[in-house]
Write a protein that binds this DNA or RNA. Sequence first.
DNA 1: ATTTTTACATACCAATTGGTATGCGCATAT
DNA 2: ATATGCGCATACCAATTGGTATGTAAAAAT
Lengths: 196, 196
Amino acid sequence: MTTDTRSQILERNFLAVRLHGFQGVRADKVVAEMGITKGALYHYFPSKLDLGYAIVDEIIAPAYTSTWRILETIRKEHLETLLQITEGFKKRTDSEQIRLGCPLNNLMQEMSPLDEGFRIRLENIVKSMAHSIETGLRNGQETGTIQSGTNPRQLAFFTLSCIEGSYGIAKSAQSKEVFDASINQLMIFLKTLKIK
Amino acid sequence: MTTDTRSQILERNFLAVRLHGFQGVRADKVVAEMGITKGALYHYFPSKLDLGYAIVDEIIAPAYTSTWRILETIRKEHLETLLQITEGFKKRTDSEQIRLGCPLNNLMQEMSPLDEGFRIRLENIVKSMAHSIETGLRNGQETGTIQSGTNPRQLAFFTLSCIEGSYGIAKSAQSKEVFDASINQLMIFLKTLKIK
DNA sequence: ATTTTTACATACCAATTGGTATGCGCATAT
DNA sequence: ATATGCGCATACCAATTGGTATGTAAAAAT
């Protein structure tokens, strides 16, 4: 089926980007391992850059924004939900993922200064996540369950910085323990924001 | 002078790595802009990889480890010093550096999974910084000025995660404001560790 | 039934890559 | 004074890069 080949190309190259970075990916070799050739690759994607954009738009962005979006819709337990999402990172991150790092973080570091198309896309993902967290925190403040003295926007960026930074530090150390330690400390901090 | 050429090659390529990532650097083009040729480059460095290692060993590592080392030697005001160092990141980071990101973070994300020589070197830098922070925090606890309920090692990795993560998030957003917000929040948190 | 389009395969290519082999003037050692 | 080594320049190279031009069998449209 047509969709199948295209989405397989996307998936395989997404994996390759995690392994080698975008610049390090040899897209024709990746598809060769699927048993197809460059012809198919350039049939679906005009260029390597467009392939990269598609990976961000169709794989990375949906996965990341959906993780946090629930914070915008709930009417109570905003902080508890934020903590659950944060804890979720520990559960769903195994040592292999620590080794490869966070796909979003990887691409931001590598591609943001190199290509504006990448940068805008990645920035929008971060903005979307930050907006969800900020909204959740603000709603929590308004329902009187989160301390009002803190700045929701600042806290949102701080939370994301901690999580992405934890991936980064743990990646160099190749240590899930380091990752968990850092996430735990973040959770300890977030709990101090709770009222009652 | 001989030392001059070599260290100029290092400096220029360090800049190029910040701009393009290690894989994106064309070392011969970089030295061409200095007015010299590949001959000089490969006279001083056996390969591009060795050039990369030298950049880490001779430029990045000393700069980073020296920033935190003072925490291991002081006898009082450990938390205040930690806060000063943290605040120092805001002062010495301008918007251009935000755009390019933290050199250590950049290289960790790009090269850690690709090359073990890079990974070990970068890991050792992080270890060294974490050790300095951990020692400072522990000594602060022992002198009774930092809360004893917290885990110094965990806090050390957390602090580094926040700082590196702040660079990463701010880099994608190309926003010094985002960087400052995240660092400010870290400082607010660190201040809660103070006794009296 | 014929045309058109889709979904790839094959073959080719210019440019670039990291790297080498060699040359050569100058300083230093002997 | 001559030999040796240092500090580079020049010229060359195989391999790889992202990409294109062309072909073609099967499906879809007319």
